[in-house]
């Protein structure tokens, strides 16, 4: 059996303790559900001797709360909510149906019981050339992300383009969510739109000694119409080959008043499709859905970092966007 490297496990009982441990143990990493980090550790992708297990923080960080704030209502999701929990939570189903839908499509039932929202948002980027054993990567000659200097996806590429593969991220980006981060220097709230970076080696602004503790989604008075879609080869136990989420607000007259579209499983950062302002005020209809499809295709360049033909993924993207937008409009 593939074994884990030698390491120490620390089991803090509170966020404070966890953050202190993160700061005091060199190269420490966080263990929540373990569904991403444990395979990666077995593959020798991380140099770490210290794992900080968060199971003891469950009572602190496992919640779905609605509350009113200065900017209106929001729904707050504790980072240790399991994926399974979010797929069934009545508040999530009611207010964030696209998130529940995304969660239902993550991996398989057991992994959804284990995996957490925080873990999914911080999921390491994935690439066919990195998520492999040490032997396999050594036969390849390693790569930019770990132990090597070359990128096998982009010839002469200097920046790692391993793909953001989390399914909750595009939904929460489309819904305008932010995340709360706790570290030794205190607490900060970062809009999710500013959370992800264009770097497959480390694709978030999270510092090594910080912990993501919560995601919050604003709930505007007029509920957003929303939908999520995941393209994958098999119907379970599979990462996205493309995922996308759309959220839009529609006036009683049927005109779009706000609009966000996010496409991911492309490169290190989920892509919020930009320059959509001119579509605000347009009717929410087939024409809009097709236009969004065209713009997404223009802005998205699938790569060979994922094992499904990039040309094909790009080709069908407008169809997937059109259908998802229409589904959102009809919701």
């Amino acid at each position: 059996m593939l074994t884990l490297p030698r390491l120490q496990l620390h089991r803090p009982g509170s966020v404070r303790e966890a953050v202190e441990l993160l700061a005091s143990k060199p190269n420490a990493r966080v263990l929540a559900g373990g569904t991403d980090i444990v395979p990666n550790l077995k593959h020798g992708i991380y140099e770490t001797e210290h794992l900080i297990a968060l199971r003891g923080l469950s009572s602190e960080l496992r919640y779905v709360r609605r509350d009113g704030g200065r900017d209106g209502d929001s729904i707050r999701l504790g980072a240790l909510c399991t994926i399974d929990q979010l797929s069934k939570d009545p508040d999530v189903l009611q207010s964030l149906p696209a998130l529940a839908d995304a969660c239902r499509q993550i991996a398989g039932p057991q992994l959804r019981k284990m995996g957490t929202l925080g873990g999914n948002l911080c999921l390491d980027t994935r690439c066919v050339y990195i998520n492999q054993s040490y032997f396999w990567r050594s036969a390849l000659g390693f790569c930019l992300k770990k132990d090597g200097t070359a990128c096998h996806v982009v010839a002469q590429g200097l920046r790692c383009v391993a793909a953001a593969s989390n399914d909750t991220a595009p939904v929460l980006l489309a819904l305008g969510a932010s995340v709360r981060i706790v570290g030794p220097r205190g607490e900060r709230v970062v809009p999710l739109a500013d959370f992800y970076l264009h770097d497959g080696i480390h694709n978030t602004v999270l510092e090594p000694d910080e912990l993501l503790v919560e995601a919050a989604v604003p709930l505007p008075a007029a509920r957003l119409k929303q939908a999520f879609f995941k393209l994958r080869t098999r119907a379970a136990i599979d990462y996205s080959a493309i995922n996308l989420a759309v959220a839009l607000a529609v006036s009683p007259a049927g005109l779009v008043t706000a609009l966000r579209l996010c496409v991911s499983a492309l490169a290190a950062r989920p892509a919020l499709i930009n320059r959509l302002q001119d579509l605000v005020g347009q009717p929410a209809d087939l024409h809009l859905a097709e236009e969004l499809g065209r713009r997404a295709q223009k802005q998205c360049k699938p790569l060979t970092n994922i094992g499904v033909d990039p040309a094909y993924r790009r080709e069908i993207l407008p169809v997937l966007v059109r259908r998802t937008v229409l589904r959102a409009i009809a919701s």
């Binding site: 066919v128 492999q132 036969a139 098999r234 379970a236 136990i237 990462y239 094992g307």
Partner: peptide, 28 residues
């Protein structure tokens, strides 16, 4: 539907795992 042993230019088998080499689940 989905099964194939795919090799890279060097002769390295892509994705030698039950995640990357797709075998159908109950849903497939």
């Amino acid at each position: 539907q989905m099964e194939e042993m795919v090799y890279g230019k060097q002769g390295l088998l892509f994705g030698p795992s039950l995640l990357d080499y797709k075998i159908p689940t109950s849903l497939d």
